[in-house]
Simulated scan of single mutants.
Amino acid sequence: MGNFKGPLVTSGALHLGLFVMLMAGDIFSSPPPIPEALDVNVVQAVAIDQAAVEEYYQRIEDKKEAVRRAEQQKIEEAQRKAREVEQKRQQQLEDKRRAEAAAADALRKKKEQEKKAEEERKRKEQERLKAEKEAKERKEKEEKERKERERKAAEEERKRKEAAERAEQERQMQEQLQAEQQARARARSRQVLSELQKYTALIKQTIQRHLIVDASMKGKSCRLNIRLASNGLVTQVSVLQGDAILCRAAQTAVYRAETLPVSPEPDVFEQLRNINLTVEPNL
């Protein structure tokens, strides 16, 4: 035991000194290393002191952590304040920019309003001048139209009188013409009737020349419809009524004649082209 007395005293002194320094808070670095000269036989004493060392180390670490946290808080606080200052500066710049933009917008709007007011003034002035011009033109037009109406009324009255005079003259001329036409028509009607009777008689005579009769036909008659071309050519013969034997003989006589006498006058021929007549044998 005498061999270990010196090291034990030394170890105890060292740990006591470290403990005092820790309690005073004057050191934050690692403690000096334990001398290697200690023998394994003092393991229990060393182990007992190791707990104090570990507590010491832990307190140092806690102190360091507290300092680190305090420094970190300071840094974060400084950063926060810097951010606030920057945000405030940015806000001031943004407020300034908005104020300048608002001022520019207000100036733009003011200029636009002044421009619109000037345009409105010019528009109203143009409308006033236009209205005055239109009123003047309308008055001139109305005066011109009034004179034109008076001129037209006078012209229409003159034309009306002339038309009335012409109408009266035309009426008199028409009456005279109608009288003349009626006289001519009556004369022509008599002439046509005379011509129609003439050619009807000639047609009957032609049929009689070609008609073959016998005693049985005496006192009998047959009514025919004969259609003629413009040259007198017979185109169709139809029996309307009468004795059958006489009608067959009369039909044959017409076809045998081939052509019948017709007038060269168109109005006379018009009444001959589709003619109905009665055939009676001369017995």
Rank of each mutant, 00 (worst) to 15 (best):
G2T: 12
G2P: 00
F4P: 01
L8V: 12
T10H: 04
L18M: 08
M23F: 10
F28E: 13
S30C: 01
V43W: 02
V43M: 03
V46A: 11
A47R: 15
D49W: 06
A52L: 15
E54N: 14
R59P: 00
E61K: 14
K63V: 10
V67E: 08
V67K: 07
V67P: 00
A70T: 10
Q72V: 12
R80A: 09
L93D: 09
L93T: 09
K96Q: 09
R97G: 00
R97V: 00
R98L: 05
E100S: 08
A101T: 04
K109F: 08
K109I: 07
K110I: 01
K115Y: 11
R121A: 14
K122W: 08
E125A: 15
Q126I: 06
K130M: 09
A135S: 11
E143P: 04
E143H: 03
E143R: 03
K147W: 02
R149A: 01
E150G: 00
K161D: 06
A164I: 13
E165T: 11
R166E: 15
R171P: 10
Q174R: 15
Q174N: 14
E175A: 13
Q182I: 09
Q197L: 04
Y199W: 14
Y199H: 11
A201T: 06
L202G: 03
Q205E: 08
D214T: 13
C222L: 06
C222Q: 04
I226H: 04
L233V: 11
L233K: 14
T235R: 13
V237C: 09
L246P: 07
C247N: 13
T252L: 05
T252A: 13
T252I: 08
A253E: 06
V254E: 06
V254T: 03
Y255Q: 14
A257I: 02
E258Q: 10
L260K: 07
L260D: 05
E265P: 06
F269Y: 05
L272E: 07
L272C: 03
N276D: 10
L277C: 05
N282F: 01
L283M: 02
